[in-house]
Nucleic acid binder design. Sequence first.
DNA 1: CATGAATGAGCATTCATTCAT
DNA 2: GATGAATGAATGCTCATTCAT
Lengths: 212, 212, 212, 212
Amino acid sequence: MGQALDERNARQAARTDARVQRRRRQILDAATEVMSTTGFHATSMQAVAERAGISVGLIYQYFGNKDELLVAVIVDILEDFRDQVPAAIAAAGEDPVDRFGAAFRICCQVVEAKREAVTLTYRESRTLPADGLERIKDLELQTAEPIRQAVADGIDAGVFRAVDARLVVHNVLLLAHAWALKHWNLARFLTLDQYIEQEWALLLASVSPRAQ
Amino acid sequence: MGQALDERNARQAARTDARVQRRRRQILDAATEVMSTTGFHATSMQAVAERAGISVGLIYQYFGNKDELLVAVIVDILEDFRDQVPAAIAAAGEDPVDRFGAAFRICCQVVEAKREAVTLTYRESRTLPADGLERIKDLELQTAEPIRQAVADGIDAGVFRAVDARLVVHNVLLLAHAWALKHWNLARFLTLDQYIEQEWALLLASVSPRAQ
Amino acid sequence: MGQALDERNARQAARTDARVQRRRRQILDAATEVMSTTGFHATSMQAVAERAGISVGLIYQYFGNKDELLVAVIVDILEDFRDQVPAAIAAAGEDPVDRFGAAFRICCQVVEAKREAVTLTYRESRTLPADGLERIKDLELQTAEPIRQAVADGIDAGVFRAVDARLVVHNVLLLAHAWALKHWNLARFLTLDQYIEQEWALLLASVSPRAQ
Amino acid sequence: MGQALDERNARQAARTDARVQRRRRQILDAATEVMSTTGFHATSMQAVAERAGISVGLIYQYFGNKDELLVAVIVDILEDFRDQVPAAIAAAGEDPVDRFGAAFRICCQVVEAKREAVTLTYRESRTLPADGLERIKDLELQTAEPIRQAVADGIDAGVFRAVDARLVVHNVLLLAHAWALKHWNLARFLTLDQYIEQEWALLLASVSPRAQ
DNA sequence: CATGAATGAGCATTCATTCAT
DNA sequence: GATGAATGAATGCTCATTCAT
């Protein structure tokens, strides 16, 4: 009997948890859409609620306030990078050059998938309360680390020059983000694939050892 | 007698014009300072007025509204680039590599001089009304052009590979701006001079012809 | 069979009624605690529910709305006075002075027992909807009546001067309530017992016949 | 010439100051009226603004927030007591009994003049932020002091018994306030003058020496 | 009976903008 | 030219109340 009850409670809890997750996602998606287009400050909670098809009050049952919602939106995006980058590197095989290239490529692709949202990240990070900022910087560093490792491995293997790996990673992320930040200009003369290809050529040349 | 009057009016006009310019500058400087620190939306016109030591009302005699003031602030910064970049290139002599290097260096230095303000440019450009946005994109293209020319000259001279000059310029400007955008990270392991030196090495390698 | 059913229903009803009363009391106690401390307006139904260990919705099955809950809380307190005052008077014997004294004492003691709640009564009575207000005034008058009678008896017996009994009762209740209302000040120089003793001396003197 | 300018500025400042005072009073009066009737929490700033015939925003140029406005309203009332009580005592001559009686009478009259507002004081004091509360307690003690002195003088002169003067003052203020707090009941059988007269008789009897 | 997710009206507060002086 | 008092629309957030489960 106790078991039956436990089981029922467990099912109930799972269902509840699923609903909570669905709501969070629903709100997060709506917020990402509206804030990306309109900008954080110009976005009213009312607008987010409308886009999500719920009431204002409900947002506050999932996110403490507007700032926390922004943090959640940005974190949500950065988690994409943090999760996908290592996976892409791992999938690229053993060759350091391939691994490095895969890292750059996936970054650009993630950016393309959430172009407006990436812009939001750049625009609004400064606005954030201190603790949100910490989480964000953390995620950025987590994303950077596997790329840095790939570059370091390449240097060790002698296929890259002895450059500062941290700086190269910085360049990689920056070039990827730029596809969002400067899309108004870049898209006038390049497709994403062209951008990736050409930037990759420059990037590789920048770290390759000079032929003797 | 008519002539005398004209002359008086002209003198009057000049004097007036000078005063107008002084006021504009006074407000612009105040706005740049406050907005750069606090962010555009979090900056009240009252705060700008106080910083400038004038009344709110007076701002509206020089700038139609808050948006226009923001445009003016951003334009003011971008004009720095537009003016200083060609000058630096010209001062660098005839060697395409030197000219290209000078362009990158001056960009970084202008960024350093107005680090917060450059960040402002990135954060708030999207908010702008269409016509302001146009002026800004225009200025960016104007800044880009002399650099592009330097790269194109280098390609023609055979000291650079046949890369897409527009893309290289994009990279140059981006790397310079990054010193402001990612200062929180970069400054942890590099000084500006080190940043310039190392990025320049990468940049040059990226466009240099492969040795046979 | 019908009888058996009736009996079962009756037992059921009694059981139900007992449960209803228990719930009401549970909610009332929680509401009194929270509202007394926090004030009516600053108290959310959520807070009352939490304190009572139940859900918000359940409160609404026992009290129509927040105002009605407040009325119930206040009525609950006033019923204490209405019930205890006559009892204390009856227990004081036949001497009008003793009866009067017992009335004052019990009032002060009831106040002390629910000091915060008494304050609540004063603070929030005005807010109430008309019908709640009526019930409250009624209870106050019911409480006043036995005291008035005691005073009237004393006057008839010649141990009190021919004062307006209603006014004296008003003073008695007021002085008792004041122990709650002005506790911040009074408690700085008096204990409750001292307060009772000294006010009683003044009160008695105020109604005692002047010696010839 | 400098003198003329100074004079103009001075006149300007005075005019400004007068306008500020007029506005403050206008808002304070409106707030007192509305809050007294409706209660603090149920009063919206919009309602205060409308009653004052100004815009909401303007209130915030004179009072930091709603709480501060409430403090100002209450202080405004308490200042009436603090100012008028000593004046009335002084005007009552040298006889301690007269002075004491004058104190009680003026308290009742001030209460009558601002009956609703006095009720507000009782209802909302608890709501206040700590520093506002301090100012209010201070004013109450300032009001009490001259009355206490009058009682003490009476005791020294032998016309009053050796009662605790502080407690008597507490009673005096309480009885005066009660005219507002319990007006719904008292006014049913007494006019203010009757109330003053009869309470005064009781009060005097309570402190008078027993005839031998 | 009991729950608590969901609603949405309501309110304090801010701030760009205007205009009488 | 210059001021700053005055406006009032806009917004984040709360919370009494309902109702599907």
